[in-house]
């Protein structure tokens, strides 16, 4: 099958998908260049997983055009997936097999010869920090190890593009840092990563570009630093304490923008000097002064209310 559009790793135009009259993806467009890490951010239920499923050809969109590795999706999805790796949101490693058997069996689904897979296994396990675990049973692995095995499994066909659906959800900080480090190595090797996450530090660290998705629509798209510069004041002062909200309301001119959530007041400022001077005279209030982050952009764009 011919590659249609070899310039982009993934291109999505006008994508729409409804379930029972409820529009989960409501017309989104984005492109991912080869060798970059693209992040799809959004609260729970924003449409991230549905978008990924459409991109992999696992469900047919109601409208829109998708090309993955130049192949039209869903029509040519099977050919496109030959060189695609997937780390799903929930581990689905085969519990009936050992670590090495999992990689062997999975590699065969791609039609790779057993000898080729066998030769790749030690390198994959080394990369995933699972060296020497070939014969380990899945039940004996920790959550972080299973996640790393899922990553190794996604690489068994030497993919050009790797989809990662919330790759570090549920992991402890050590395990998350290890996964991040490995993902950076993959982009350094020229792989294209497409990841969904709701951890803003993860997106900020890993992604060259990212898009914020909410209620099935793209709210914004750009490089992490650009988004922070475009959407938010550079400095944030969080003020806590029983009287913080009332105190902040009476002094709302000390920052460009003020948000109050419970007992915490968030001042978004260009110059924090007047605010910090005022706070120095209030011994009962505690505060934290920090640089604005992607999380502030995310909250500003998607709101503070809880999502189901």
């Amino acid at each position: 099958m011919a590659a249609l559009n070899p310039g982009e790793a993934l291109s999505v135009t006008g994508l729409r998908k409804s379930y029972d009259g409820n529009e989960v993806v409501a017309g989104i467009d984005f492109k991912v260049s080869p060798g970059t890490c693209f992040g799809l951010l959004g609260p729970n239920g924003a449409g991230k997983t549905t978008t990924l499923r459409c991109c992999l050809g696992l469900t047919t969109p109601d409208a829109g055009r998708i090309t993955l590795r130049g192949y039209a999706i869903p029509e040519q999805a099977e050919a496109a997936r030959e060189r695609v790796g997937v780390v799903p949101q929930f581990d689905n490693i085969d519990p009936d097999f050992t670590v090495a058997e999992n990689l062997m069996v999975y590699g065969r689904y791609f039609g790779i010869k057993a000898a080729t897979i066998r030769a790749r296994i030690p390198g994959l396990l080394e990369f995933a920090g699972l060296g020497g675990k070939e014969k380990a049973r899945i039940q004996t692995l920790s959550g972080g190890m299973k996640r790393r095995l899922t990553l190794a499994r996604a690489l068994v066909n030497e993919p050009d593009i790797i989809f990662l659906d919330e790759p570090t959800t549920g992991l402890d900080p050590q395990a998350r840092h290890l996964i991040w480090e490995r993902l950076k190595q993959l982009t350094a090797r020229g792989k294209t990563l497409i990841l969904t996450t709701h951890f803003m530090d993860e997106a900020e660290r890993l992604c060259d570009r990212l898009a914020v998705l909410d209620h099935g629509r793209l709210v914004t798209e750009g490089a992490p630093r650009e988004l922070i510069a475009a959407h938010i004041e550079p400095q944030v002062v969080e003020v806590f304490g029983d009287d913080a909200a009332a105190w902040a309301r009476s002094r709302n001119t000390l920052g460009e923008r003020l948000e109050i959530a419970g007992d915490t007041a968030f001042f978004y400022c260009r110059d924090t000097t007047p605010l910090l001077t005022a706070l120095a005279e209030e011994p009962t209030l505690r505060y934290m002064h920090r640089a604005a982050s992607l999380e502030d952009v995310f909250i500003k764009l998607t709101g503070r209310e809880l999502r189901d």
Binding site: V86, P88, I93, D94, Y106
Partner: peptide, 11 residues
């Protein structure tokens, strides 16, 4: 076990 789901991510 979601074994089929894992297989559907391959060709």
């Amino acid at each position: 076990q979601k074994t089929w789901e894992a297989i559907l991510n391959t060709p």
